[in-house]
Design a protein around this nucleic acid. Sequence first.
DNA 1: GTGGCTGCATGACAACTGTCATGGACGATT
DNA 2: AATCGTCCATGACAGTTGTCATGCAGCCAC
Lengths: 203, 203
Amino acid sequence: MTPIRLLLADDQDLVRGGLAALLSLEPDLEVVAQVGRGDEVLDAVRLHRPDIALIDIEMPGADGIEVTRQITSALLGCRCLIVTTFGRPGYLRRAMEAGASGFVVKDTPAERLAQMVRQVASGQHVVDPQLAADSLAGGIDPLTDRERDVLRAAAAGGSIRAIAESVRLSPGTVRNHLSSAIGKTNTQNRYEAAREAQHRGWI
Amino acid sequence: MTPIRLLLADDQDLVRGGLAALLSLEPDLEVVAQVGRGDEVLDAVRLHRPDIALIDIEMPGADGIEVTRQITSALLGCRCLIVTTFGRPGYLRRAMEAGASGFVVKDTPAERLAQMVRQVASGQHVVDPQLAADSLAGGIDPLTDRERDVLRAAAAGGSIRAIAESVRLSPGTVRNHLSSAIGKTNTQNRYEAAREAQHRGWI
DNA sequence: GTGGCTGCATGACAACTGTCATGGACGATT
DNA sequence: AATCGTCCATGACAGTTGTCATGCAGCCAC
């Protein structure tokens, strides 16, 4: 039988190279391409036609969830397996909504990665059970689109005025959205709210 | 010649396994032990007697810099190579002070890791040149002990009052220390100051 | 069409925060 | 002994921030 063709997308060279070495040990797996930026993944998939793309979430250019959306909606016959450091419930949910076939955190035992790849290749969906439970328990994102925008800007730091300029809103409106987000996250100020939202994968 | 014996310490199984696979491809390198917690490294070094320990900084149990200090001060004939995600100047400086023989960030090209390991094995010190420059340019920690304490507490979030309670100071004093730290970090508020100090490795 | 939700904005208020001046205590240095 | 730097504290001030009430406009579902 022909080997399963893999593409690796991760911005850290050592990690990507390590995963490639690890997966190449398996006779039925073949790493056919590697990329280090989110915005290079789609082209690489078109060019190399992998069966499965292993995609990190944190990447420059475009994040892994956006990339997953691009690949699955392009109908290229390539399934997406998210491989990420952070098992945030929001990440999992958004990844699956984007069409991912699996979700693995990087502290999964190394022996099981190849096995998960095979499961995805055979059409199954693979999700860490603990994470799936957290995701359900964690509740869904109560933030509005604008609140998310403003929170993201707040996470970068700076005064209300600076945030207002970066999202093109009046300072008063920014404060309203932030106040609302602070309430929804049960926090005391925008910095905590931004961190909490980030932790839950809402932004 | 006998192969160079390596120990890998990294809390993420996939990354650790990947690095092991990568390094095992080299005929002159041998991975003799792997651990996932900082507080298990020293015992593993005593047991397996590696020539070089590749150590991540962020680990549960004990951080990689502390572990490096333990290993080098125990005079076990094991050199330490820090392999970390974050190339923060403060990390580099503290790692070298702790006795590390090298410092590599995880977006180093995978091909060069083995080469760096060999350099360390031959007694050289290996440091990313860009990082070394940043470290020198970044300057030394201008914060006083109390400012560090207060900044650490501020990084955890919460109001001035909460910070004051956690460090057993009056709120006014906390504000003074924070104000001073804000000035020294060229930031606008305590959150940015805490983040900046963290980034530079001051706290 | 009407009601309900969201986005956007304004203004007012209280609370919080950063800055500054000031002062006392302590240890290290000269 | 005098000086310096740090720590701690207080009080005052201005600016920022979070909250709330209110209003208008657009969109969607019923």
